[in-house]
Structures are given as structure tokens and as C-alpha cells.
Simulated assay, not measured.
Amino acid sequence: MTDISVKGEFIKLDAFLKFANIVCSGGEAKILIADGQVFVNGEPCTMRGKKLHDGDQVVTAGGETFVVRTGN
């Protein structure tokens, strides 16, 4: 499990996938999410704009698991 730190109060799921280098583009993120290949807290998530908050969100995609860390 890898911690990924981002600025701000939250980050949207599609932007998180790009930030964590799971995908190279927003288009790739959209496809991965729509295909049900992204899990948030162990559940498939098909909402591109889902807001991820500090520590309480665990994202699994591309065979890797990440804990979201946000802050200013």
C-alpha cells in the first residue's frame, strides 16, 4: 500500500489516477473507471468525479493500492 499526498481538501478520482501515474490521460482514466477496474475502499467505483478525502479513501487500480493523503 502506497500513500499518495495531494494538495487541497480532496481530489477527484480521475485526477487521482493521473496524479498517481496509474494512467497517462483523462481518457484512460475514464475508460478504466467506466470498466469497473477501479476500487475505492474495496468497492468498484464508476464515478469519475468521486471526491477522495484524506486517509479514509483507499484506491486500488492497475494492481496497486493507494491511500489518499490530502492537505494544504
Results as ranks from 00 to 15, higher is better:
A34L: 07
V67Y: 05
F16R: 06
S5F: 10
E28F: 00
K30D: 10
V68S: 01
A61P: 03
A34P: 00
A61Y: 05
C24F: 08
I4H: 07
V58I: 14
L17D: 02
Q37D: 11
V67P: 00
F66W: 07
D35G: 00
K7M: 07
A34Y: 01
I31F: 07
I4Y: 06
T65E: 08
V6F: 11
V59C: 00
D35Q: 14
I33N: 02
G42H: 01
F66N: 00
V38A: 08
I31K: 15
I33L: 07
D14G: 07
V38G: 04
F10T: 11
I11H: 04
T60S: 15
G63P: 02
Q57C: 15
V40K: 05
D54T: 09
K7S: 14
C24Q: 14
M47I: 14
D56E: 15
K12Q: 13
H53S: 14
A34N: 12
G26T: 07
F39Q: 10
V40D: 02
G49D: 15
G42R: 01
T65K: 10
T46V: 12
F16L: 06
M47P: 00
E28T: 05
S5Q: 12
G8E: 09
R48V: 07
L13D: 02
H53A: 13
T65S: 12
T2S: 12
Q37F: 02
V59Q: 01
G62P: 03
I31C: 00
A34Q: 12
K51M: 13
G27R: 08
E64W: 04
A20H: 02
G42T: 01
F66K: 02
L32K: 11
F10D: 07
G26C: 08
V58W: 01
T65G: 02
K50D: 06
C24N: 14
N21W: 03
V6R: 02
V68R: 00
K18N: 05
K7G: 11
S5A: 14
S5G: 03
I4T: 09
E9C: 01
G8Y: 10
D3G: 03
L52W: 04
L17Y: 11
K12M: 11
G8S: 09
F10G: 03
H53M: 13
G62W: 03
F16Y: 11
H53L: 15
I31E: 15
T2A: 12
H53G: 09
A61H: 06
I22E: 01
N21R: 15
V68I: 13
D14R: 15
G42I: 01
R69W: 03
K18C: 07
D54R: 06
I22A: 02
F16M: 08
A20F: 00
G49F: 03
G55T: 10
D3N: 13
E64Y: 06
A34D: 13
L13R: 09
V67H: 10
L32G: 05
G8T: 06
C45T: 10
A61K: 04
A20K: 04
V23C: 05
G42P: 01
G42D: 05
T2Q: 14
N41W: 03
C45G: 04
